[in-house]
């Protein structure tokens, strides 16, 4: 078995819409090593969540490969995907919408166990209690309903449900973005502890770079369905190549109030993902864009240390930023 638990190769997902084809995910490739965390960053609507759902087999990919332990998820039939779910789970963004309001916490956490008949009915209750303990959820909530819990506890329920089948890989789809900052830290710590304990691999989808810096081994930055930069976490923060990543990084609030920050301010809005023109999709908002940026398709350039970036002016930009 290879070192990579998950390999995504040239993944494409297009949605047909009235006005044309929506390029939700366009030619995205990355891989995740077992036991590590890949942070997938980008603004709203750039296709982060779609990638998560494609990996889970909740959407059918237009083309490309998703290799999980060497098997292609895109080519699996229903039965195989059903078996796959035991190893591949997801934690959803909104812990309220993702829990059935008419099921008690115990029923929600126990449902996957029932579906896969992992435990006997008599042992279900004790297994649910064990899972609640694992995620730090007080057992007195076992018969409560989701609306009776606060956001942090609801998200713990979602985590317990994802953990119940003992998966190897969990897609965390913005698991903390709808929580208070104080609760965010709790949930993040919990996820880290669980990773250490069970050797989990995470795909951590978020738009919050400060979260991802704390959490990930590797970071992938997306813009409008395309990967623009991917690197080891430290490397990305040290040597930021793509102008979009630079803008994102400069938007992280500084904890030190005296520290003078130069913010790269982006102008304009996300361009439409429907039938995008070839070339750099960020060009219209980029501070450094030139005529060469549009028209031709981009290629991923290697900057060493498994640092890749799609900017066609990356070399020049890198030199200028370093000289500054």
């Amino acid at each position: 078995m290879s070192d990579n638990i998950l390999e995504v190769k040239n993944l494409i997902k297009h949605f047909k819409s009235k006005n044309g084809t929506l390029h939700a995910v366009d030619d995205v490739s990355f891989s995740i090593k077992r036991g590590q965390t890949l942070g997938l960053v980008g603004e709203s609507g750039c296709g982060k969540s779609t990638i998560g759902r494609l990996i889970l087999g909740l959407h059918q990919a237009t083309s490309g490969e998703i290799l999980f332990n060497g098997q292609d998820i895109c080519k699996m039939n229903k039965k195989q995907i059903h078996d796959l779910r035991k190893d591949l789970q997801i934690i959803f963004q909104d812990p309220f919408a993702s829990l059935n309001p008419r099921m008690s916490i115990g029923e929600i956490i126990g449902e996957p166990l029932l579906i896969y008949k992992k435990v006997k009915r008599a042992e279900l209750d004790s297994e649910v209690r064990r899972l609640m303990d694992v995620v730090g959820l007080s057992k007195r909530f076992i018969n409560s309903y989701p609306h009776e819990l606060d956001g942090g506890r609801r998200q713990r329920v979602g985590i317990a449900r994802a953990l119940s089948l003992n998966p190897q890989f969990i897609v965390c789809d913005e698991p903390v973005s709808s929580l208070d900052v104080s609760i965010q830290a709790q949930v993040l710590n919990l996820l880290k502890d669980l990773q250490a304990e069970y050797g989990l691999t995470y795909l951590f989808i978020t738009h919050d770079l400060s979260v991802v810096k704390y959490f990930s081994d590797k970071i992938a930055v997306m813009y409008l369905g395309q990967l623009v930069e991917i690197a080891e976490s430290d490397e990305l923060f040290k040597k930021t190549v793509h102008p979009y990543t630079q803008a994102l990084l400069s938007a992280i609030p500084a904890p030190n109030i005296r520290q003078k920050m130069q913010r790269v301010k982006l102008i304009g809005e996300l361009t439409s993902p429907i039938d995008p023109e070839p070339g750099c999709r960020f060009a219209k908002r980029c501070l450094y864009s030139q005529a060469q940026c549009v028209g031709q398709d981009l290629e991923f350039k290697d900057f060493g240390n498994s640092h890749f970036c799609s900017c066609c002016r990356a070399d020049e930009l890198l030199n200028t930023t370093i000289s500054q």
Partner: peptide
């Protein structure tokens, strides 16, 4: 609703 997708994700 998202909980339907969640149910599908846990193999229902």
């Amino acid at each position: 609703e998202e909980f339907i997708e969640a149910a599908r994700a846990i193999g229902a």
